[in-house]
Design a protein around this nucleic acid. Structure first.
Length: 441
RNA sequence: GCAGAGGUGCCAGAGCGGUUAUUGGGCUAGUCUCGAAAACUAGUGGCCUUGAGCCUCAAGGGUUCGAAUCCCUUCCUCUGCGCCA
């Protein structure tokens, strides 16, 4: 049975699970929990009942086998046995029903929160734990990245809307260089920290996808590839390489000596952004496609909390080297999302003097690993001892990072100063001024 | 896309309608040893109300008193051939 939370935990400690839901303000999930508990009880009763019938069936079958072997008459035994499968089948159907209720219920229950997650209702209750750098000072009115990039002739949102709809972009020349430079810079940084770089498949089967994400994401976030060939298990475009990296080790048993496995994924991300009306959608902030370098870790349970901090340090170092002003929040119980036990959001400063999310760092503990069935063992040849923990954190999303670079490093003449660490990746350009191979259209 | 061969436990690999899923290897424990190796012995998945219990041979259905074994559907892997950047 696919598990999300451990059904045994719910049986033995329902109050703890209930308190967790209350802290999350997940009132509607309390009913779900009660349904799960009731169905599990029913399932256990039926299991006992059906096991007794199966036992009788097995006994008769072996008696028949013995009789046939000895050449004795077995007709009366066969007569007796004929009715049993029907009885078993009736119970098995009900057993399956109850099991499905439990399974679907478990899939719908969120992860257990870490005690250090602050209590709160929504994103206004997130706790600021760090502010790095100072607010940029301008002796002119700073412009938005969209205005700057459009004027420089290196981003074309209007024509993208014509070709593909809202939420897309054509980048040109220096902005393309910048996009790639950010990725190369982040990849080099993480490689120097020992992370293995992964370019994953950009499409994943639904059955694998269910392990790494919330089910509602299939409607609101992911693009489905319509293909009559594989309707049963269709492919979805990845919304982040996190999903592809989690799915990579599905159903595997890892040797303890291999852990932690530290990965750096690089890929485009595709997101439908259904229901984002009213949210901040200017320019590159909320788009259907963007590039991202992602950190992902599989580790032993006792390693995950220190690695959660390591992932945070990594992404902050990237922004610090880019000379960008940001802050970090500890996401509160009401805003954390179902798969994380604890989450830090990194928020970047933008020219309208607001901080907005640029990265998200989650310790998912064993929640994803249970769904994906990824376990570990002490050494080769031994039986698995438990589920691994998984963590993921944005290293850098190029779209939102470009927003910050444009808005924080803009000059009075509308040019953009390139942070030193990126220059070697973009032909040593110091300022973006839109003059390279300018397209006059 | 077409054709063929496959999917069995931690791993390899046999079984192809009948009581207990052969057999290796690995791993764990014990015996022996100053210790180790070797050898030998036992164990080595999941579930529940712990019983001479039930389940487990890619997944799901079916046939049967009884299915790893026969039939159907789906998924996956490998090997050819075709197509293709």
């Amino acid at each position: 049975m696919t598990k999300l939370l451990d059904i045994k935990l719910i049986r033995e400690n329902p109050e703890m699970v209930r308190n967790n839901l209350e802290r999350r303000h997940a009132q509607e999930k309390l009913d779900l929990l009660n349904i799960v508990i009731a169905a599990d009880k029913k399932w256990r009763e039926l299991t006992t009942k059906v096991n007794k019938l199966r036992k009788r069936r097995n006994e008769i079958s072996s008696e028949i086998a013995l009789a046939l072997k000895d050449g004795r008459d077995s007709n009366s035994l066969i007569e007796e046995a004929k009715n049993i499968p029907e009885e078993i089948k009736i119970i098995e159907i009900e057993l399956q029903n109850q099991q499905n209720i439990v399974k679907n219920g478990l899939m719908g229950l969120p992860n257990l929160l870490h005690e250090s997650v602050p209590y709160g209702k929504d994103d206004k209750d997130n706790v600021i734990i760090k502010i790095w750098g100072n607010q940029p000072q301008f002796n002119f009115e700073p412009k938005s990245h969209a205005e700057l990039a459009t004027k420089l002739g290196i981003m074309d949102i209007e024509r993208a809307a014509k070709a593909s709809g809202a939420g897309f972009y054509y980048l040109r020349n220096e902005m393309v260089l910048l996009d790639y430079a950010i990725m190369r810079y982040a990849v080099d940084f993480l490689m120097s920290k020992g992370y293995t770089v992964i370019e994953p498949p950009y499409m994943i089967r639904r059955s694998f996808y269910e392990g790494v994400t919330d089910l509602s994401d299939f409607e609101n976030v992911m693009y489905k590839i319509i293909d009559e060939e594989n309707e049963k298990d269709p492919l979805y475009l990845i919304a982040t390489s996190e999903h592809a990296m989690g799915a990579m080790l599905k159903d595997e048993i890892l040797n303890e000596s291999a852990l932690p496995i530290k990965l750096c994924g690089i890929s485009p991300c595709f997101r439908k952004e259904v229901g984002s009306h009213g949210k901040y959608t200017k320019g590159l902030f909320r788009v259907h496609q963007f590039n991202k370098v992602e950190q992902f870790i599989f580790c032993k349970p006792e390693q995950s909390w220190s690695l959660h901090e390591e992932l945070q340090n990594n992404c902050e170092k990237l922004y610090q080297n880019l000379e960008l002003h940001y802050r970090v929040v500890n996401v509160c119980t009401g805003d954390i999302g179902s798969i994380a036990a604890k989450k830090y959001d990194t928020e970047g400063w933008m020219a309208d003097r607001e901080f907005r999310e640029i990265g998200s760092n989650s310790n998912c503990t064993d929640y994803q690993a249970r769904r994906l069935n990824i376990r570990y063992r002490h050494k080769e040849g031994q039986v698995p001892v438990g589920y691994v923990h998984t963590l993921n954190n944005t290293a850098i999303a190029t779209s939102r990072t470009m927003i910050m670079i444009f808005e924080q490093h803009q000059q009075e003449d509308g040019s953009i100063k390139i942070p030193k660490v990126l220059r070697k990746y973009m032909n040593d350009i110091e300022y973006i001024n839109g003059t390279i191979n300018k397209l006059e259209i």
